[in-house]
Simulated scan of single mutants.
Amino acid sequence: MSQAKSTFEQWRILQAVVDCGGYAQAAEKLNKSQSSLNHAVAKLQTQLGVALLEVRGRKAYLTESGEVLLRRSRHITRSVSELEQLASNLEKGWEPSLLISREMIYPMEHLIDALAEFEPQGRGTRITILDSVISGSAELVESEAVDLAIIGGAPPKGHLAQPLCNVDFHLVCHPSHPLASMELPLDDQTLAEQLQIVIKDTGQIARGELGWLKAERRWTVANFHEALVVLSKGLGFCWIPSHLICDAIKEGRLTRLTLKGSSHRQVPLSLVIPNRDKQGPASQLLEQLILKNHSVLEGEGEG
């Protein structure tokens, strides 16, 4: 591997000369002598064997070759600066990555809103989001496999949870399904005789599936997108979060059903920090932004 002919500092000086419009202005910005800047750029051009600048009057102008090389140099110096910033962040304990567990029923737009606010302050922290269901969410918290977890229902024993919101479920089927033409509300026995679509528990030791589970005929799928595809074919019924099916119900692509004694279901969602003692500053910032998104910090809560 050949040794580099130029240095990071030389390119930084060249950028300053161009951006400031001359050597004198750049010298003032960089707190260096004008002669040292002249020497650095002249040496850079000699080392490369390419003319980068030409001086006309009191201003320095890029040559065509200089424009190409300067443009590329900005990417390189930016990358070096980001690398140095990352090293500084790691030294201070700022996490280079965060792993978030999201109960699948949690509205994704809420999390994206918080992440959009986090990104400009995130110092390059990489984000990974895992979708989980029922015991899968609990297992990720108990094993401390994630930095933050949005869970449904009660938190695992020994963990505190901050309530975020409630998600309503509606019982739906396709308009062509026999249930759609039956008199409402339906009774348990009628529903138990039909095919039910449920969402698979993501836990290693599955404790159940997502949905009312009295139907003997049951198809289990990985997520609500797959469940909606099945329903669109006129097959089965399913409990689906209301925010996922508002448009489909309005447009007549799905029919909402009611069950005696249960017009809808509601699941509370909460934010859990699996290990508060090990929580870093990036995780703390994102936690605050998620809570802010739900007005929890102001004590207003959200229903």
Rank of each mutant, 00 (worst) to 15 (best):
S36A: 13
L14V: 07
Y61L: 01
A138I: 08
S81W: 11
I197D: 04
Q121S: 08
V41A: 06
S2N: 04
E193W: 09
S35T: 10
C246A: 13
L111V: 09
T46F: 13
G66H: 02
H177W: 12
G122I: 02
I151R: 01
R12M: 04
M1P: 11
E67T: 05
E84L: 08
Y106G: 02
E119L: 08
E226I: 09
A51W: 11
F169S: 03
Q3N: 11
P274N: 08
S79L: 15
G21Y: 14
I100K: 04
T7P: 01
I134S: 01
L164I: 10
G303Q: 15
Q10C: 10
P107Y: 02
R12S: 05
G261D: 12
L291Q: 15
I76H: 13
A215V: 11
L98H: 08
Q121H: 10
A114N: 03
H243P: 01
S79G: 08
H177D: 01
A222F: 07
E251G: 10
R12V: 11
Q204G: 14
Q10N: 04
V55A: 06
I151L: 05
H174V: 13
E142W: 06
L90H: 10
H110I: 06
G303R: 09
E183G: 06
T128A: 04
W219I: 10
Q45E: 15
T125I: 07
E95C: 09
S81M: 06
G158K: 15
G57W: 06
K5D: 03
E117W: 07
T190L: 13
L111E: 07
S88F: 07
L70I: 06
A24M: 05
I199N: 09
G66T: 03
D187L: 03
G236D: 13
P185D: 05
E119T: 05
L195T: 09
A149N: 01
L228Q: 12
A51F: 09
S295Q: 11
R58H: 06
T220H: 07
C20T: 03
I273M: 04
G299N: 00
H39R: 14
G153I: 08
C246S: 12
G93Y: 12
I134Y: 02
K5N: 00
P274D: 08
A282R: 00
I273V: 15
E28H: 14
R74K: 07
E139S: 01
W219T: 05
C246L: 13
H110G: 09
G153R: 00
E216R: 14
T190F: 12
Y106V: 00
A42D: 12
Q189E: 15
R56N: 07
R218Y: 13
L213T: 15
A114Q: 05
P178C: 04
E28Q: 14
I105G: 00
H170V: 08
A227L: 08
E209D: 14
M182W: 09
S137L: 00
S6P: 00
E287Q: 10
Q85P: 05
V41P: 08
A248Y: 01
E84Y: 10
G152P: 00
L235T: 03
K59C: 00
S242W: 11
G252K: 12
L37A: 02
R253G: 08
Q279F: 13
S65K: 14
S88Q: 12
E209F: 12
L30P: 05
K214V: 07
M1K: 11
F169G: 03
E142T: 06
V296R: 14
